[in-house]
Design a protein around this nucleic acid. Structure first.
Lengths: 234, 234
DNA sequence: ACCTGAACACCGTTCAAGT
DNA sequence: ACCTGAACACCGTTCAAGT
């Protein structure tokens, strides 16, 4: 269809100074999502915060899915503008992974969204990780496999980290209680000693440190496979 | 419109032979989820299929979250009853990972649920993977790290695999078109040659093979770390 | 062009009333 | 004890009407 022009019209009737825009809508959505979680992001809450009518939003955003995707992309874009690249590609990959983990820790709804509907934010992640893998001289199908695996791991681990709690406040304050409850329910329902061990690990472990240990397992595997592509090669 | 009566009940006190039960409710929910996807699992659709009233469900299931968790646990439990253990723990870990991937491929809503609300199904996965890691003589904190990482990878990869399509029919028939559309949008919005490469990979790659390649990166990393715990050790 | 807000077609859950 | 189904308190989205 045609391009809609979008002439900013400086003089005109001036209207309200804080006119609605996609940016303002996304910013307001992020505030609600961070404060109250995804279920509380309703068009009614959004219109109340923006002092507008329900339908006005739809002049800038197609629907709620697009709003969530835009809010997620905003957080991820912001994150990548802050990542500092190291001379060592493996170290940069650790920084990228940890940056994503911390962003999802701070905005749990981002983790849910990236697993549910990855476009367009996950593209940024693919690009950044692919670049570093090339620097590691992992190329061709090996790069595709390694990149896909690392992206899946990072998103999967972050999603597990924020599973249960729905807001950042919840994550910090309630995750311990959540894990404790979970641990109790496990041991209650299952006398298996292995379950007891898992429950203890739940109580004690540090998600962030464990996440980084997983990244290192990946990097070790990628580097080992590059050095020695197949187990049968000499 | 008022009488409704329509009481077939032949002899009364026998009640209906197919009385409601948690099992029948969960089975009906799985049928709807597989056929139409999570958004179409409504209590109205469920009561219609079970020929009952809306409130009757609540005598057996606390709410929709519990219903989704129960349906997911049902699928995962079913899966583990079919896994064949190999003498080689690494091979069994591949079989478990692939079994979970295929189960989520067949029931995409399971992937969403496991990322969103892991209990109790993810416990089964932890147990099965932890057992095989012990057989690999990965113990202590290393086992905890390795198990957590593999679970995160498997769930993350499966979630990415089913992202977009919402039913198994969609996955098979529409994923190719989805990836093609995605590839086109990528190249349209971004002239970066790296994006072009990613788009080509999207079009060509085999999710299942790539998933297995990622599992092997993991196993390689875990085994390499066990053999040589820290990079600085001789 | 952009905004308004009532209206529409839903949804999960509750609860008085039945058996 | 278990079931019924109307009612309640929402929700995302639409659309005639305004400026």
């Amino acid at each position: 269809m045609c391009q809609d022009v979008f002439v900013p019209t400086p003089q005109r009737s001036a209207r309200r100074s804080d006119a609605l825009s996609r940016e303002r809508i996304v910013a307001a959505a992020i505030e609600i999502l961070d404060a109250d979680g995804e279920p509380d992001l309703t068009f009614r809450a959004l219109t109340a915060r923006l002092s507008t009518g329900a339908g006005a939003i739809y002049h800038h955003i197609a629907n709620k899915n697009e709003l969530l995707a835009a809010a997620t992309d905003d957080v991820i874009a912001q994150l990548f503008s802050q990542i500092e690249k190291d001379a060592d590609p493996a170290q940069t990959l650790r920084a990228i992974s940890l940056g994503i983990f911390d962003a999802i820790d701070a905005h749990p709804w981002v983790g849910v969204q990236l697993s549910h509907d990855p476009f367009p934010a996950v593209l940024r992640i693919w690009k950044a990780i692919g670049e570093q893998l090339q620097a590691l001289e992992v190329t061709g199908p090996a790069q595709s496999n390694a990149g896909s695996a690392l992206v899946s791991y990072v998103l999967g681990a972050a999603a597990q980290h924020v599973a249960g709690p729905r807001t950042q406040r919840d994550t910090a304050a309630k995750r311990e209680a959540y894990l404790e409850t979970l641990a109790e329910r496990l041991t209650l329902h299952d006398p298996d000693p292995l379950v007891g061990e898992i429950a203890d690990q739940l109580r004690e472990h540090d998600d962030r440190a464990q996440f980084l240990a997983g990244v290192d397992i990946f990097l070790t595997g990628i580097i080992a496979q590059t050095t020695r592509p197949t187990p049968t090669s000499s």
